[in-house]
Amino acid sequence: MKDISELQFPETVRYAADHEWARPDGDSVVIGITDYAQDQLGDIVYVELPKIGETLAPGEVFGTVESVKAVSELFMPIGGEVIAINSALMDSPDQVNADPYHDGWMIRIVPAQISDMDLLMDQAAYITMLKG
């Protein structure tokens, strides 16, 4: 596992305590897991994502991510309706390891309340939390 200083935490996304990120993109929000989360899990071998059209509340489970010997649940950083999923992850879950903020994105939602984004951490707050 890497040191926190070796990991990437872009300023363009917001962070949740469960290590998901959310990035506004037009009317929708893109969601994935952070560089820290993928590093903790190690080689990701499988990602399970929700069905398009599902509406999920903040904190609700939207999927799971698996390494060889662990399963982690994925929690909604903000609530909303799922309008797209990154189906490329079915065949290439390693994209989450290689590029967690872009090719490794997981779902796109229409947020129930875009203002909920303000409840998430910014880069500095998230790094502070990680350093504990």
Binding site: Y46, E66, V68, K69, A70, V71
Partner: peptide, 9 residues
Amino acid sequence: LATREQHIR
């Protein structure tokens, strides 16, 4: 595919 099994899940 051991993540299906009791010792992990």
